[in-house]
Design a binder for these strands. Structure first.
Lengths: 257, 257
DNA sequence: CGAGGGATTGAGATTCATCAATCTATGTGG
DNA sequence: CCACATAGATTGATGAATCTCAATCCCTCG
């Protein structure tokens, strides 16, 4: 990626966090790495960056010098058509990887944009093959995270291909709700911060923002859930998951450790 | 997987093919493995199997003792809803992997079914971690194949979420056409064997079989393509790809070798 | 206090699904 | 080799889900 397309990524000069102290390591790439090796693996995390909401992290058809781990915030991964239509492929949350490609020459096949104030850990792509060769824990973990992303992508295909508007929205919100709760270990909460606009939800579920609005109204009237002032409140988790055919267990990362 | 659910997989006792002679190795898991190591890696390919059309290879919610490489034939990978609706996630063709999971304990998150007379190479799941640890070429190749499957899955999401019926069908058929031509190196052919029913196409594109029928009729009348007696004939490749927003380059496996 | 982006609602058009019937190709048993 | 059975393909008619266009409202921010 040429440096001018990086203008949105602001390197954190001071107060970078240390991998040894990382509160979300159990979710991320260095889960499973021996404590004594963490200082060494951290060398491959060359920088942390902050990005403002709605700013691009990288763009389809361009190459990227980094792969990232989300440390804090929400990121939308999406593809666009020439017509301007946009499909959000997944929402990356703390611990999730962004922009890994085994082929360093290949250009990105999707774009990524911060949805909220976001902090990323950056790993120079060039050094990844070496890291994966020298530390098998990281290599295995990468495979796990890939497999989990794949499962999420496939489930999303099922939803969008075969479910109705209300089922898709129920699925989408259930998934994010459960992922957030797993990340922050707040099992008792019934509401989460939710920075997506109705248009974002539409781009993720394959619906127009107008139909999303009507669908959310229905869900509210059914007493299942409600979104207002960037907060998602779930009033009836079980019914919502059932409506969306969402299985809460599917958000777990099946880890070998 | 309990053995009784394996009844459709018929082990080939005689005339198993050798990895050293494999005509599709450039596409498959052992691409990049040193010639001298192939006899050793082949030990991990414990069996070849044949499966009749429409027979299940493995099923969602069950575990599988094997992961597979498609050696010959067409395989549908799909998920189903309680309502009975089915979403075909991808079509696996010769060289493609099936059923790899990093966590041996985890159950399959999708089902797989042969669409034609199919031959699979079986790799016992239990031995995969050892193979990946001992041969880094295989490990790297697995990562490449995963990344490629991920790209295909994400492109499919874009199609199904954002394109119209005719665009989706055009995309779907273009993709399979180009993949088959790449596999068999028949760049000049304008027709391929195509074992899917119209209902299969519908399950892959998120449409009903009736609407698929009408869409195919339109594509035929537009002079773009035609399916008859299990043969897909492309009359105007460029227009078809353009209509479906399909990029022929996307089917290439970006290989490091 | 004004501007602008998102949210909300209405009306009408379009796409696609559903239901139902017929047709065609393929394979099977007698 | 024929009669029948069956699955897939085709067409028509109708209705529901979702999109598009347009207007208004509301909230936030400068």
């Amino acid at each position: 990626m040429s440096s001018d397309s990086h203008i949105h990524l602001i390197p954190i000069e001071h107060k970078q966090t240390a991998c040894t102290d990382c509160s979300i390591r159990r979710l991320a790439l260095f889960h499973g790495v021996d404590e004594k090796d963490l200082d060494w693996t951290q060398q491959y995390r060359s920088n942390q960056f902050t990005i403002a909401p709605r700013k691009e992290i990288y763009r389809e058809t361009q190459s990227s010098d980094y792969m990232f781990t989300v440390y804090h915030g929400w990121v939308a991964v999406y593809k666009t058509l020439d017509s301007g239509k946009r499909q959000i492929i997944r929402i990356a949350l703390p611990g999730d990887m962004l922009g890994f490609q085994p082929d360093l020459q290949a250009v990105m096949t999707h774009s990524a944009m911060a949805l909220s104030e976001t902090v990323l850990c950056g790993f120079p792509s060039k050094a990844m093959p070496e890291l994966l060769r020298k530390n098998l824990s990281v290599a295995r973990r990468l495979t796990e995270l890939n497999a989990r992303d794949m499962n999420i992508c496939q489930s999303r295909l099922l939803t969008i291909g075969q479910q109705s508007a209300i089922e898709r929205v129920a699925f989408f919100c259930s998934e994010l709700f459960h992922r957030i709760k797993m990340i922050y270990n707040h099992q008792q909460d019934t509401a989460i911060h939710f920075p997506l606009s109705q248009e974002d939800i539409g781009d993720a579920t394959g619906l127009t923002k107008i139909h999303v609005n009507r669908t959310l109204k229905t869900l509210r009237e059914m007493g299942l859930m409600e979104i207002s002032s960037k907060t998602l409140s779930i009033h009836d988790v079980n019914s919502l998951c059932e409506l969306g055919n969402f299985n809460p267990d599917s958000v777990k990362i099946h880890s070998l450790y």
